[in-house]
Design a protein around this nucleic acid. Sequence first.
RNA 1: GGGAGCAUAGCUCAGUUGGGAGAGCGCAUGCCUUACAAGCAUGAUGCCGUUGGUUCAAGUCCAUCUGUUCCCACCA
Length: 903
Amino acid sequence: MNTDIPKHYDPSREDEIYTRWLEKGYFRASVNPDKKPYTIMIPPPNVTDKLHVGHAFNNTIQDALIRAKRMQGYEALWVPGTDHAAIATEVQVVKALAKEGISKKDLGREAFLARVWEWNDLYGGTIIGQQKKLGISCDWERERFTMDENLSDAVLETFERLYNEGKIYRGERLVNWCVTCQTTISDSEIEHEDGEGTLYHFKYPFTDGSGYITFATTRPETMLGDTAIAVHPEDERYANHLGKSVNVPLFGDKNPREIPLVKDTYVDPEYGTGAVKVTPAHDPNDFEIGERHNLPRVNIMNDDGTINENGGKYEGLPREEARVKIIKDMEALGLFIKEEKITHAKGTHDRCHKIVEPLIKLQWFVRMDELAKPALEVYNTNKVRFHRERYGRIYKHWLEIVRDWCISRQIWWGHRIPAYYCPSGHVTVSKTAPEQCAACGSASLTQDEDTLDTWFSSGIWPFSTLGWPQKTPELDYFYPTNTMVTAKEIIFNWVVRMVFMGLKFMDEIPFTDVLIHGTVLDANGKKMSKSLGNGIDPLEVVEKYGADVLRLAFLNGTAIENDTRFHWERVEFCRNFMNKLWNAARFVLMHTQDTPREVSPNNAEPEVTLLTSAPPATPAPSTRIIPVEDRWILSRVNHLTREVTEKFDSHDLGMATQKIVDFLWDEFCDWYVEIVKVRLRDEEEKPHALATLVRVFTTCLKLLHPVTPFITEDLFLALQTDEETIMRAPWPLYDPALPDPAAEKAMETLKEAVRGIRNIRAEKQVPPAQKITIRIQPNDKDAEDLFTQAKAFLALLCNASEVTLTPHNQPPAANENAVSLVVPSATLHLPLASLIDADKEKARLQKERKRLTQELERIDAKLSNEGYLSKAPANLIAAEREKRESYAAMLNKVENELKGTVN
RNA sequence: GGGAGCAUAGCUCAGUUGGGAGAGCGCAUGCCUUACAAGCAUGAUGCCGUUGGUUCAAGUCCAUCUGUUCCCACCA
């Protein structure tokens, strides 16, 4: 007996179940020519990350997909792994060192990297253990790390090949330079803070003596590097001056610097004077204007922040002093107009909080034009599909405006650029350190100090993880992969790069489908962040409620492509549902465990064991009449199977989940289980009822398994012994022989009757314990059969002591003091003598008459509309006509009842 | 500035090719009905942001406006 099954669902068994899965090797996938592969590459989290809600959401989606595919008979591979997260990790280690008073420079490259590896061993990889708590079914034996030997080799190979093809080049580029720390810093290390600044207004004289042009700047010292003045092409104020040049008057009369007036749409004519000084070497926007107009780049600053030889008489001055002096000099020349205080965004280094200087340095680039074309092509030809489609537009847009990709980073943690320089300045690129310079044979080579952008290695993740550049069987079998599941903010950082890298090196797309999901926000719709302290720790949720509940909370009813708020109420609902499921199983087990599993041999009803394997078979011919509720629930679960499968296929996990949850709670628990209780008390009927019960329930467990893997496994194992895991049990299949519209319609009528009676009971305040009697007057023979069959459970569901039927061909019984309820195929009478108030009863019927009349009016309006009749689909019109008939019949009955009450 | 969303019940959100507005929570009322009070039953609540357009038919498609969010790039 089942007294030992606890009343409440307890998720603490999850770890035990997971361990068993690992031991049994259920997550493993291997090259298997007999099966079709289905592959997902995990977006590798940063190796030092802790699992946050975003990971949990992302991983849950992938696991649901992979589990469904595995059950559907695919060789389902999910490759896990981590990313070395170049900058993020380096920053953390540098910070840790700073606490010890050590700087990166003090330590030197080799020792520093040793520390990073140490750090990695210590803090890295905890996320893997945390992911396992989610129950995700990655093939852990294939876990990869972007700094693994093989993957590093793949990175260098990629670099070398692109370089040899001329797709990688060196070029000048502005980088963020910290004068204090003497280092370049990445964008993510810059803090933008609004601060007070001064906007200085100056004028430069036209060289032809025709006046002045006025402009403003917050950084007067960069005037030393000005190589143009720009105005908007359509700015009429400067129409007469186009083609002229101006003089930068800071270099004395001996070395006047003449710079052109250029027109560029970057300039906002509404802002200020509409004229902008252009300093390509010290400002990112100016850099681009310079590119467009082939302007020289005059670098005026040394690495220590002092003015260099290009600064004329200002050479050697620190930038701040140069600024002051330049302002004075301009004033002396009568070219200073005014200064004003403004607030503006300042970029400062997040560690020393000093202003960051944009400086020109030599960097490595990937030439994008040729690489981008095929990536656009596969999008335009629908070979790579985005879900939702709108996200594809982001991808497309980015590729259309793509610029060359700067891949060098001035940090140490990462894949060091395999470029070697000889004293004469020749460059040798080779994945293995060359003995000598390829150009001059010099043996004294130094390797480039920079490392590669993290995205360079993650761009080849879909194939480097499968062994590339080696031609492995895995690569052959699992590539291209199927679904890439990731967040929208890295569509261009990552998705785009995987596509063109895949096309370049594998000659094939890396994946066919890109599933973009939204962000999990806090309950107020804010992004979760450390500084706000509004983050939800997914592990805390797992600890308290179990992974199943967390996963269900992520998926149930959510449109995963949208941002979604995290609500504890939602978590509680999911916990409640787990409990519901648990108790439904308890109910089933309670009856299976004291019943022999064998059903009588001549019985046509499918055996309990059937449920776990093949799709439900069509019942063989039998003299036994299958009860309407069984026909109904089988038809419904069959329908559910199709819907859920379709939703999974279209990546609509939220709807798939909700359909299962709703079915289980509403149709299965609230109706079928209640109905079937009657037959479970009948020795003869019990095995049949139980068979259907188990069959439907098991089907649901399978459908739900991808979302809540633990509880479904637990219950599945309790319900059957034929299979050792639900994970590899076959996915339920839609059976075209099962739909039973007649049974569904009949059950709707019965449900309507039950609800109507319950409603009357509540309205009339019949005490819950008080039994009532129901007299049913069916409209026809079919209805008579239906209600005869349903008598017993109607009595149970309505708490009636007696349900009687008037044969359909007999005239209605004499009017009695009863409440009447009209449903499509019958009229039900509830003699409630003591509780009936004739006036109220009349009012109730009148209300019903009004409702039916309105419905009829609505339908009639439609059916008398020429346009509707000629253009609406025939099946819709037929359905309306059918409805009309039904409503008309019901209205007729109600009228009769009213006549009865009136007298 | 470029790009992409969102606006539906008190709250949080579903609503897949256009065809009679849904769920959960909350609320009201009554129930410990032997699977489940983490439950059951019954009930109330919506000019589907504005204004136009297409259509026999619009929450759904198009345009407009208003409010709002995110991503990228930035303010000389």
